[in-house]
């Protein structure tokens, strides 16, 4: 039998799988830089609001001030504290990203795992559902939804993003599950009389854990980006502040023409940096998990 292993004898592994991954993870600059940037903003979202001395949406400051000791990021044209808006906006971005990402991941995993494992008619029905959601014009639906809901909150926005962004994840997970299901250890698990859920989550999912982590990261980043887009065009939450809304307000009030850069630069930079760091982390993780991409 020289077919699969070539002629390199199976070498006794000196490192076990998990240690090896940690070893490469700690030496991957892309992953480390991405994680660092992400953590900086996450800490800002968690602790920033505690540092803010003003309410984000109250008009209690002199309008149009550039950054100063009293107002770190300056104030808006209407006398709101930009720093306070920024950290609260950061927090809502992370909340939308997490909720939207988790919703999409849960649906995508459920659909992907069952379609891939069961195959046949289950696969066809779930596949059809996936394709339907994939081609739904998201913005058109959102316009309709926005017309009916007078007050929209973060939760609604996150749910909406989660319910529309899962199809690509479902497809990717389905394909992976499909190929793992054909491996004999799944047949062995069935000969143990194990339940479908146990086989999926005990045998198949652990084999694609790296894949699932990366899928979640991409869904998370995608949700933040979509939320910012929705907020920017005025379809976001009506009862709170977010990074996208800050951009929306600043543009609507001609901040650029007035030279009030402190109003739109922080939210724009933050969105770019967070989403960018997630994608860089994703590339880094790919290198860590995939031995072929590891630089020796």
């Amino acid at each position: 039998m020289t077919s699969t292993t070539g002629s390199a004898p199976a070498s006794p592994a000196t490192k076990t799988g998990r240690n090896e991954i940690l070893y490469f993870a700690l030496r991957n600059t892309k992953l480390l830089i991405g994680a660092f940037v992400f953590m900086v903003f996450l800490l800002g979202a968690i602790f920033g609001p505690m540092l803010a001395t003003h309410e984000p949406l109250t008009f209690d400051a002199p309008p149009g001030l550039p950054p100063s000791a009293g107002y770190w990021f300056g104030t808006t044209l209407f006398g709101q504290d930009v720093f306070s808006q920024f950290v609260h906006g950061l927090r809502s971005s992370f909340i939308v990203g997490a909720l939207g990402g988790i919703t999409a991941a849960v649906i995508g995993m459920f659909v992907g795992f069952f379609a891939g494992y069961r195959g046949g008619i289950v696969d066809e029905v779930l596949n059809m559902l996936t394709n339907v959601v994939l081609v739904i014009p998201t913005f058109a639906v959102l316009l309709v939804v926005a017309a009916y809901l007078s007050v929209r909150g973060l939760g609604t926005e996150a749910m909406f993003i989660g319910l529309t962004s899962w199809p690509w994840a479902a497809r990717a997970i389905r394909a992976q599950t499909f190929s793992l299901t054909s491996r004999d250890f799944v047949g062995m698990a069935r000969l143990n009389g194990e339940s479908t859920l146990r086989i999926i989550f005990g045998e198949i999912a652990p084999n694609m854990s790296s894949y699932l982590v990366m899928t979640f990261i991409l869904l998370f980043g995608g949700a933040i980006l979509t939320a910012a887009t929705l907020d920017f065009i005025g379809l976001g939450p009506t009862d709170s502040i977010s990074l996208g809304l800050m951009m929306n307000y600043s543009v609507m009030n001609a901040a650029l023409q007035l030279g009030m850069w402190w109003w739109f630069v922080p939210p724009g930079l933050a969105i770019t940096a967070i989403v960018g760091s997630l994608y860089v982390m994703n590339v880094g993780l790919d290198e860590v998990f995939n031995p072929k991409l590891r630089a020796l």
């Binding site: 004999d184 047949g187 062995m188 143990n192 009389g193 194990e194 045998e203 652990p206």
Partner: peptide, 28 residues
């Protein structure tokens, strides 16, 4: 019971082989 052609594919590659026996004990 059955045993299949490819021994390497019959074991879940990320677990130690002893897990197969623990599963058997739990299930049966």
């Amino acid at each position: 019971q059955g045993v299949f052609q490819d021994p390497f594919s019959s074991f879940n590659p990320i677990f130690k082989v002893g897990r197969v026996f623990r599963t058997i004990r739990r299930e049966f």
